[in-house]
Amino acid sequence: MEKSYIIIYNIPVDRLEENLKNNNINRYIILNNTIVALYVDDSFNEDILDRIDGIIWWERSSVMSSLIELTNNLPNGETVRTAAGTEYIYKNPYITPTGKDIIIAIIDSGINYLHPDFIKSDNTTKIISIWDQESTLKPPPEGYLFGSEFTREEINEYIKRNDSSLSVDNIGTGTIAAGIAAGLGHGNSNYDGVAVDSELVVIKLKSYKDTFAKGKVNYEESDFLAGIK
């Protein structure tokens, strides 16, 4: 078993890394010039963190939950733009708010990349890359400790084969968020996203179970912060 910590430091990063390694802490992700996520064995004695030079604050990574229940029992849907109150923007003849040249990051449960709302008219994906934190198929992004990074080219190959196995959204919230933000409306033209011409970078968070309720999935703050990085 593994647990994680968020620490704040106030020394040069190379000195911090040296101090961590001198205390047998070798699994960490540098998030920025003040924050690091540590990943350690479940038997790790956290009192060590109080004795490492340069660490000025630390906490055990917090548990996160999307606190959402998905249902298909809604009799009538509502468009994203109506729900957000932004329909007037798209009726303005002087602007084209399509999200062109914009990249949107989705940090959630992953994405169903075979959904038609994320496949362009030339049968290629609008997803730039996926970091699946649970996958072991390929190496993680450079500088990270776990998961697999999948490129646009690899996603396109799986789309050609109609193969959903590269990375799977088992919960659905990530796919929903991506559809709200950038869906093309190919599945249903009434439900296109807010920024249809934007592109996506997707992080599928590592999932943990049974923290809040039996069978319910939750996430960790450290993995989420790594996704932001």
Rank of each mutant, 00 (worst) to 15 (best):
K3V: 12
S4E: 10
I6E: 03
I8V: 11
I11N: 04
D14S: 14
R15D: 14
E17R: 09
E18P: 03
N19M: 00
N23C: 05
I25R: 02
N26R: 08
R27M: 11
N32A: 07
N33A: 13
I35R: 15
D41E: 15
D42W: 12
L49I: 09
I55K: 10
I56K: 14
W58S: 12
S61H: 03
S61M: 04
S61Y: 03
S61Q: 07
S62G: 10
E69S: 13
E69R: 13
N73C: 13
L74Q: 13
G77K: 10
G77A: 07
V80H: 01
A84P: 03
I89S: 06
I95L: 09
I103V: 14
I104Y: 02
I106T: 07
I107C: 04
D108C: 01
S109K: 03
S109E: 01
G110C: 07
I111R: 03
Y113F: 12
L114S: 04
K126V: 02
K126M: 12
K126T: 02
I128Q: 04
P139I: 06
E142L: 06
Y144L: 10
S148Y: 08
E149T: 06
E154L: 12
E154Y: 05
E154Q: 13
E154K: 06
I155G: 04
I155P: 08
E157H: 08
Y158M: 07
K160D: 13
N162E: 14
L166G: 08
D169S: 05
N170T: 15
A178T: 06
A181C: 03
A182G: 11
S189W: 01
G193R: 08
A195K: 02
V196N: 01
D197F: 11
E199P: 02
E199H: 06
L205Y: 00
K206D: 01
Y208T: 11
D210K: 05
F212H: 10
K214T: 10
K216L: 12
K216P: 00
Y219G: 09
Y219C: 11
Y219L: 14
G227E: 03
